[in-house]
Write a protein that binds this DNA or RNA. Structure first.
Lengths: 134, 134
DNA sequence: CGGGATCCGGCTTGATACTG
DNA sequence: CAGTATCAAGCCGGATCCCG
């Protein structure tokens, strides 16, 4: 489980490298950091959640995109899906242990950005101003 | 600069919240975690870099997308662009202090994923196997 | 070398409708 | 509630040409 080696897509004795075009880690990174992936994972860090509640936490996501995002994350072992065959149906989504680790690193980034948006906004004004109003 | 407040898009007295549909932090997060954004920021963490060298580090990115990505990151104050009006022209890109902080958090996520891809790959096999070959 | 401008095909996305 | 199916639109991204 430590220092795994990419046995098929990144070369014989080479560890996974996201900068390599064909490395599967790039795919997973995209699932996790994708438009809805990062928000979904971040929202689930607050605890298990049902489908429609998740939709409310992640403002703006459509049913289709949330469903699609959750499937990709479940396949990658980031999210666990628990369905109870009751009526009405009840399905809970939660992070796996792997997902929790991912979420914490993602949230560190998110919170840092949230905490420094004033700097970003200032930079934007400077940038937009410098290039003559364009 | 500490505990900034979103004065226009997230409500009067409320800090920036990436889960809110209209919060500008969501936009910046997408620039940073976007398909090429994360790899570009990660690659620049190794040090300043010229355009075409960056293209080589980030395998698979087109000129157009790299250019576009760099502009967005520069506007957000993540990347600094230094052009020397020589001939042939020489342009160096580097992370700003803000960008370095962002990159470190991003790389923490990337390295964690790279180091746990075997678990992801196993999860995928299980997932694909369970749902009867579909 | 370091890009900008343009064209264009296709995948992604978002409504909408429907199912269990 | 928890999704899937369908479809049109639009944006993404690559290829190409051009410029400084």
């Amino acid at each position: 489980m430590e220092t795994p080696v990419c046995t098929d897509a990144c070369g014989p004795e080479q560890p996974f490298d996201v900068f390599a075009r064909t490395c599967p880690s790039r795919e997973t990174l995209e699932h996790v950091t994708g438009r809805w992936g990062s928000l979904t994972v971040g929202a689930l860090r607050e605890g298990p959640c049902r489908f429609n509640e998740l939709r409310r936490r992640v403002e703006g996501v459509s049913e289709k995109m949330l469903s699609q995002t959750l499937h990709a994350l479940e396949r990658d072992g980031i999210v666990n899906r628990e369905a109870q065959p009751t009526n009405p149906p009840r399905v809970d989504y939660e992070l796996t242990p792997l997902g929790i680790e991912v979420a914490d690193r993602l949230l560190a980034l998110i919170h840092y950005l949230e905490g420094n948006m004033s700097a970003v906004l200032t930079a934007r004004e400077t940038y937009d101003g410098t290039r003559g109003g364009r």
